[in-house]
C-alpha cells in the first residue's frame, strides 16, 4: 500500500531462517508474530520446526570438514570480517536491538558496539588458543609428545532469550572460532537481530553451513537437537527452566555430547575462555625422536 507522504510502495522485509548459506522459510510454513518490548507488532518471523533443525544439522555437518581444515589464521580473518560487515550495518542492528530489548537507541548502540568487539576479541583467539590450551608433554621415553586442540564437530546452540545480539554473538563466536560448525536457535521473542546477523554472515566469507540460524522456540526444537546423534555438543544458554535443561542434558548423554549448562551470565562481562575450550577435543601425539 502506498505510504501517505511519498506515494511509494512499502518494501517489507520477510524474516527468514539462515540454513546452509541460504535463506529458506520454515519447512513447516509456520511464522509467528514478533512484538517489540512494549508489545507492539514488529514483524512476522519464520518459526522453525524440527525438520528445519534436521536440515541445519546436515548443512552444518557438510560444512564442518572444510571449515575445520582452514588454517586458524584464516578463520580468525573471517571472524574479523564479520565484525567489519556488522559495523556497516550498525544502524540497522541498533534499531532492532532497541526495539527488541526496549533499550534507548544510545544504549542499543552500546550493545552493538560490544557485540562487534566480541567478534574481534574471539577472532584474535583463533590462532592463539592452540598455544594456550595445547602443550608439549614430558614423557619417559625417546618421544616428543604434544597435545593439540581440535574442533568437536557440530555444536547446537540454544541462544540466550534476553540478550538478542550480544548474547547470540557470545555463544556462536566461541564455537566457530576453533573450527566447529553451529546450529543456533535464536531468542524466541527477540529474533530480529539474529536474522540480520545471518545476513551479515552470508556476506562475510563465512562458508555456507558454518553457522545456521533458526528462529523459533528452543523448547520445541531443543529436544530434537539434544537427541540428534550427529550433533557433538549443545549449549543450553537459552533454556531458563532448570528441569527442562536437565531433560535435555539426559537426552544429550545418548551420544556423549558436550553439554554447556545454563547459568546466570552477564553477557557484557569479558567472557573468558571457558566457552571456547568447551568445544575442543585434545589430541595427543607421540612422535619418536630419532637417535
Amino acid at each position: 500500500m502506498p505510504t501517505k507522504d511519498s506515494g511509494r510502495l512499502e518494501v517489507r522485509k520477510t524474516y527468514k531462517l539462515y540454513v546452509g548459506g541460504a535463506f529458506p522459510r520454515s519447512e513447516s510454513g509456520r511464522s509467528y508474530v514478533v512484538n517489540n518490548a512494549k508489545g507492539k507488532f514488529l514483524a512476522n518471523a519464520s518459526q522453525a520446526s524440527r525438520k528445519d533443525a534436521r536440515d541445519a544439522v546436515v548443512a552444518a555437518r557438510k560444512a564442518f570438514g572444510g571449515w575445520s581444515a582452514k588454517t586458524a589464521y584464516n578463520r580468525g580473518q573471517i571472524l574479523y570480517r564479520i565484525a567489519e560487515v556488522m559495523e556497516g550495518r550498525h544502524e540497522q542492528f541498533s534499531a532492532e536491538v532497541a526495539a527488541s530489548e526496549g533499550l534507548s537507541i544510545a544504549k542499543a548502540r552500546g550493545v552493538v558496539d560490544a557485540s562487534i568487539d566480541r567478534w574481534v576479541w574471539y577472532a584474535g583467539w583463533a590462532d592463539k588458543i592452540a598455544q594456550v590450551v595445547g602443550s608439549s608433554n614430558p614423557v619417559a621415553g625417546p618421544y616428543f609428545d604434544f597435545s593439540l586442540p581440535e574442533a568437536t564437530g557440530v555444536v547446537a546452540v540454544l541462544a540466550p532469550q534476553e540478550s538478542s545480539l550480544l548474547g547470540l554473538t557470545s555463544v556462536i563466536a566461541p564455537a566457530i572460532v576453533s573450527g566447529n560448525t553451529v546450529v543456533a536457535v535464536s531468542s524466541f521473542e527477540r529474533p530480529l537481530p539474529a536474522v540480520t546477523l545471518g545476513e551479515v554472515m552470508a556476506t562475510s566469507d563465512l562458508p555456507g553451513g558454518v553457522v545456521n540460524i533458526l528462529t523459533g522456540s528452543a523448547t520445541e526444537i531443543g529436544p530434537w537437537l539434544a537427541s540428534h546423534l550427529d550433533v557433538n555438543a549443545i549449549d543450553l544458554a537459552g533454556i531458563d527452566d532448570l528441569d527442562e535443561a536437565r531433560e535435555l542434558e539426559a537426552a544429550a548423554a545418548e551420544n556423549l555430547k558436550r553439554v554447556r549448562r545454563p547459568a546466570d551470565e552477564d553477557w557484557a562481562e569479558s567472557p573468558g575462555l571457558s566457552r571456547l575450550t568447551q568445544y575442543l577435543e585434545l589430541k595427543t601425539v607421540w612422535h619418536p625422536i630419532g637417535v
Binding site: 534436521r54 544439522v57 555437518r61 530434537w224 537427541s227 540428534h228 546423534l229 550427529d230 550433533v231 537426552a251 545418548e254 551420544n255
Partner: peptide, 9 residues
Amino acid sequence: TGHYPGPDY
C-alpha cells in the same frame, strides 16, 4: 527410535 541418527553409526 524417535530421534535423528547420524552417519557415524
